[in-house]
């Protein structure tokens, strides 16, 4: 979900018979749940798909700092400020864990970031929506991090070792993010004023559908899913994960005493799942293509940070060289 629509370069799966001996050994290793490590042989398309997926995931963590950065200077108490700062800091950290995993595949972090800045790489659609009131900090933690966790928990078993290990770290650290968000909302609902309760419902109304879109298009419109599943880069389909998220979230919503903006939402006794209304995929596609409410400013902020900061990084390199030379002389 932090990686939506990852291109795998193949719309049709090869059978074991159609594979080269190397490919076949590789696939058998994956089928046997043996992790692929950096130095192992891997098909070029596997490597490229992983680089795309991990970098998308990393970019999402980094861009994801911005909607929260919008409120960190306005957090209402010192405790809330500390919590939000720690969460934002974790996100930068998670971005770095992921870039680090990506670099084991031979990709260069700066080059991949340049792809993000020039619009050639994607990041999660959710971060192109604005955060308009303080309750958004709660709703982002609860819904957005909640959706992220549903997606990331199975990724701890993904076939590529460095990615799986980064996910283990991320999941462990992220467990507090969702609770932190939910607690913000619960506190406002139970102890807040009418205005605060309205903020909470307003935040849920705006973020609900974009959160569901985070899991990516429905299975029949995910041409790359089959290959990613065969490679065990992905362990569940988009629709499976989306359903899991809805099923676990609605009871939490009821505890809050809030609603979601979906008149078709209802419990299905027979299937044991919630049914829900149609997702506006046209909107999702627009946002992914760069036309969401905040795409321009999010990318501009990231681009500026790195471009305007170039002199700082250069100065650090120059100073390190001078220091090295001095040490060499001495």
């Amino acid at each position: 979900m932090y990686a939506q629509l990852v291109e795998t370069g193949s719309k049709k799966l090869k059978t074991l018979e159609e594979m080269s001996p190397e490919e076949r050994a590789f696939q058998e290793r994956i089928d046997a749940e043996i992790k692929i490590e950096a130095k192992n042989w891997m098909p070029d398309s596997y490597r490229k798909t992983l680089i795309r997926q991990i970098s998308q995931h990393a970019h999402s963590e980094i861009v994801g700092m911005l909607p929260e950065g919008n409120w960190v200077t306005r957090a209402p108490t010192l405790k809330r400020k500390l919590q939000l700062m720690a969460k934002i800091q974790d996100e930068a950290g998670h971005g770095l864990y992921l870039y680090s995993a990506m670099e084991t595949l031979g990709a260069d972090r700066d080059e991949e970031i340049e792809k993000l800045h020039s619009g050639r790489a994607k990041y999660s659609s959710i971060f192109n929506y604005p955060t308009l009131n303080w309750a958004d900090m709660g709703a982002v933690g609860w819904l957005v991090d909640g959706a992220a966790i549903v997606n990331q928990v199975p990724l701890q078993r993904t076939s590529y070792g460095p990615y799986a290990r980064a996910m283990v770290r991320v999941c462990k650290e992220e467990s507090f993010h969702q609770r932190q968000g939910y607690e913000i909302l619960l506190h406002m609902m139970r102890h807040g004023t009418e205005a605060q309760k309205e903020m909470v419902q307003d935040a849920i109304n705006r973020l609900w559908w974009p959160a569901l879109m985070m899991f990516g298009p429905s299975d029949e419109h995910s041409p790359n899913s089959a290959q990613s599943m065969a490679w065990k880069i992905k362990r569940h389909t988009n629709d499976e994960l989306r359903q899991r998220f809805i099923d676990q979230t609605i009871p939490q919503l009821n505890v809050l005493g809030c609603t979601v903006p979906d008149p078709d939402l209802k419990w299905n006794e027979e299937t044991g799942h919630y049914e829900f209304g149609d997702i506006q995929w046209e909107e999702f596609n627009r946002v992914i293509q760069g036309h969401g409410p905040c795409n321009t400013e999010r990318l501009e902020t990231r681009r500026n940070a790195i471009e305007i900061g170039a002199w700082v990084r250069e100065a650090a390199v120059a100073h390190a060289h001078k220091k090295q030379q001095k040490q060499a002389v001495a």
Partner: peptide, 15 residues
């Protein structure tokens, strides 16, 4: 320092 969120000259500096 909070004002720097997402704007630091290197990702390591964000942390």
């Amino acid at each position: 320092l909070c004002e720097w969120t997402g704007k630091a000259p290197a990702l390591e500096e964000e942390l």
